[in-house]
């Protein structure tokens, strides 16, 4: 029964013209897990995320989250249901500061309306109080991810590695129950990768967030994942414990081309 699973994808299919990017993909994720998805370039991993987020409409199949079907809802409703994400190519708000980017993560949790915002004249006005409460939450995330130095800088001025971290922080600020990480380690140097592994573990421990992660870096995947799903050409190759999957002959074939 899909209703009992925390998160479940069932028979998800997405075609772009003649190309089938996702082919009847089915898997489920338990609460609290770190579930990784691996596969060579063009295997359909990012397409899967975009379907979950409703940035694409899947042609067939369903997505279930906490007992409710979320297929085809508006992207902002999916965010409101508790699914956050980061992007492979970093989708930050480049002309805003790190602080403002993180504050946008709090958007769902804030209630200030048009009139309340316009009347934000005083420290004790409702809008100002709400602003300060959420600023406090964002400062905690800044401390956790050590972003103090970039707080008031514009994102377009930050180095690539820092931007990745800001994007992670922004997703965290939204306090999702399920976090989709699209290649969080891509383009990071070794030191930054180690930090990232540390943070991912920290995030799971402190926030209890379930994570669905796409990653190419096998070391990182093996270190942090509870379960791994391997896909190629939009189809599942195998799913299981990290060691099993990594040593699976089809997976090795897909990666090494042998």
């Amino acid at each position: 029964m899909p209703e009992n699973d925390f998160f479940r994808v069932e028979g998800l299919t997405k075609r772009f013209g003649g190309l089938t990017a996702l082919d009847k993909l089915t898997f489920s994720v338990e609460k609290g897990m770190l579930f990784s998805i691996i596969g060579p370039n063009g295997a359909g991993k990012s397409t899967l995320f975009n379907c979950i987020n409703s940035l694409y409409r899947p042609d067939e199949g369903k997505v279930w989250f906490r007992g409710k079907e979320i297929t085809g809802l508006n992207p902002h409703r999916i965010a409101a249901a508790g699914i956050g994400r980061t992007f492979q190519n970093i989708e930050l708000f480049a002309n805003m500061t790190t602080m403002e980017n993180l504050m946008l993560g709090r958007h769902l949790h804030m209630k200030t309306g048009l009139f309340g915002a316009a009347m934000m004249f005083h420290r004790r006005s409702r809008a100002a109080r709400e602003e300060m409460v959420h600023r406090e939450r964002v400062e905690r995330i800044i401390d956790l991810l050590e972003l103090q130095a970039s707080r008031d800088k514009f994102v377009s001025q930050l180095p690539y590695g820092t931007r990745k971290v800001v994007e992670l922080g922004r997703a965290l600020a939204a306090e999702p129950e399920l976090l989709l990480l699209d290649e969080p380690a891509a383009g990071l140097n070794n030191e930054e990768k180690e930090d990232l592994i540390f943070w991912i573990q920290d995030i799971r421990r402190e926030f209890g967030i379930t994570i669905l992660m796409i990653e190419h870096n096998m070391q990182l995947v093996q270190d942090v994942s509870d379960r791994i799903l391997a896909i190629n050409f939009g189809k599942m190759i195998t799913e299981g414990e990290p060691d099993e999957v990594v040593n699976h002959p089809e997976v090795m074939k897909a990666y090494l081309g042998g």
Binding site: H76, A79, F87, E91
Partner: peptide, 8 residues
């Protein structure tokens, strides 16, 4: 796109 995935 990013705005929508943050619930805007």
């Amino acid at each position: 796109i990013a705005a929508a995935t943050l619930g805007v």
